[in-house]
Design a protein around this nucleic acid. Structure first.
Lengths: 263, 263
DNA sequence: CAGTGGTCTAGACCACATC
DNA sequence: ATGTGGTCTAGACCACTGA
């Protein structure tokens, strides 16, 4: 089929696409070159989150490679969470939209198994401010840099359950303060997708137990001295940049943090 | 080569080995059957940790399958950390000294990033008893059934950090009470592997914040009224059976629970 | 040198989803 | 009926390892 047989390894690196003009970049396996090229194309918005990618055959023709090589590239994208595949339907860019995998990063459940994200959300404050040292360090921006700060209260069946304090750097998300104040979206990550083409693919969380502060007690309607769970979250974009810093405080009388570890 | 062409799916399930005598067990893909069979063979000691496995070709001949199918099985074992591969040398069973990660289910870290499992362990109690209703329900055994109960204290640099209460059903792990009392192993799951050929592949955890009990305060040297993190864990074997129920209580002054979510 | 895993190709049949 | 991804086969060449 091609003028090439089994060029495992360096060889001429006949990788098409990009028009980046540079010389042969690296003696990478072809499937890695395809994988990285697909990542670039997604980041450049060629396919938006939730949209359908071309089939393996189409991509293979476009890259002038065999189906198996493209498949291996896509399989890595699946394990990294960039795309999902459905037999008979196709390959889709991962999204926080629709009924696909909503709120997959939220681990709070009620004792009866309800997800906290199915409850009510109350927006308490959405302002522009300066990054605290803690937030600045996490987001890798200068202390005092302009940020959007959002405070929300999540409730379930009318009972206040969790207080979320969210910080977004305005350098990466210009105008996020206005957007958040106006739209008051339920899913921050969906907003990031739709307004900035930023796809959150990984979050790191640090969990501690502490006593509720007076502010926590007031918002969550807790008795003084109640212990609460504090979750400090840093969310990363597909490119690995820290995008959002979040401090969530939840009661665990009627709710818990659920985690499943495998592999 | 074979009398079979592309039997993707159920078909006759011509999987060799096992001698389990039963009927065709499940319409699993062949590479998954190979993968699980290899896991069983490793657990049964056919190859010890650090030893060399047969080559892909040898295994493919043994299973009467193609090399690619065996390769896919082994690739999954690599991602799960059971074996490692080196081009030109071969495939090796993961060893404790090498790349094996026996404590991959432990999420507690000190503020400086040290893993709690690198610290000291003090065995406080190892007794035989009856399953509490809570433990029995989790382990799917009868309330009051005989269980091994173990209490350990984990410390870091001499500072007590976490109290672990571990429950193992004696029906599944006969003699576990004696083994745990004698060997006082650091890794329960390694003990399960070596004594019962039980491989823990998944754990579910539920995390809550609560106040330290007097017993917690004493063991962890905490001031009265200190909030602590309580982690309730259920560990499942490769076959999906619940094997161990564990209640861990940790302070979060000098330590936190760390979680990374992707996909 | 022979053997190993790593990459790549080219085809087949299957289950599934959509029209 | 068509097209999709999922599985399986059978070969090829390559880089690396160790005798």
């Amino acid at each position: 089929m091609k003028n090439r047989m089994a060029n495992a390894g360096k060889d001429v690196t006949p990788f098409p696409g990009g028009a980046d003009g540079g010389p042969a970049p690296a003696p990478q396996p072809l499937y890695l070159q395809v994988k990285n090229h697909l990542i670039r194309r997604v980041l450049q918005g060629e396919w938006k989150p939730g949209e359908l990618l071309p089939s393996e055959m189409k991509l293979a023709e476009g890259y002038n490679l065999s189906q198996g090589t493209v498949r291996k590239a896509i399989e890595e994208l699946v394990t990294e969470g960039l795309v999902t595949r459905h037999a008979g339907r196709g390959t889709f860019v991962a999204s926080h939209k629709g009924d696909y995998k909503p709120f997959r990063f939220h681990r709070f459940r009620s004792e009866s198994g309800e997800r906290l994200t199915d409850g009510e959300v109350t927006f308490m404050r959405a302002v522009t401010g300066q990054a605290s040292p803690r937030a600045a360090k996490a987001l890798q921006i200068a202390p005092g840099a302009p940020v959007a700060m959002l405070t929300r209260l999540r409730s379930l069946h009318g009972r206040p359950m969790m207080l979320e304090r969210i910080v977004l750097g305005l350098e990466l998300c210009a105008g996020a303060d206005a957007i958040l104040a106006e739209q008051q979206p339920n899913s921050i990550y969906l907003t990031l997708e739709q307004n900035y083409n930023i796809l959150i693919t990984r979050v790191d969380e640090i969990i501690r137990a502490r006593l509720a502060t007076p502010e926590d007690e007031s918002a969550l309607e807790l008795a003084p001295g109640t212990p609460v769970l504090e979750v400090e979250r840093l969310a990363f974009s597909l490119g690995g940049e820290p995008v959002e810093w979040r401090l969530s405080v939840g009661q665990t009388e009627h709710m818990h943090y659920w985690n499943q570890l495998s592999s």
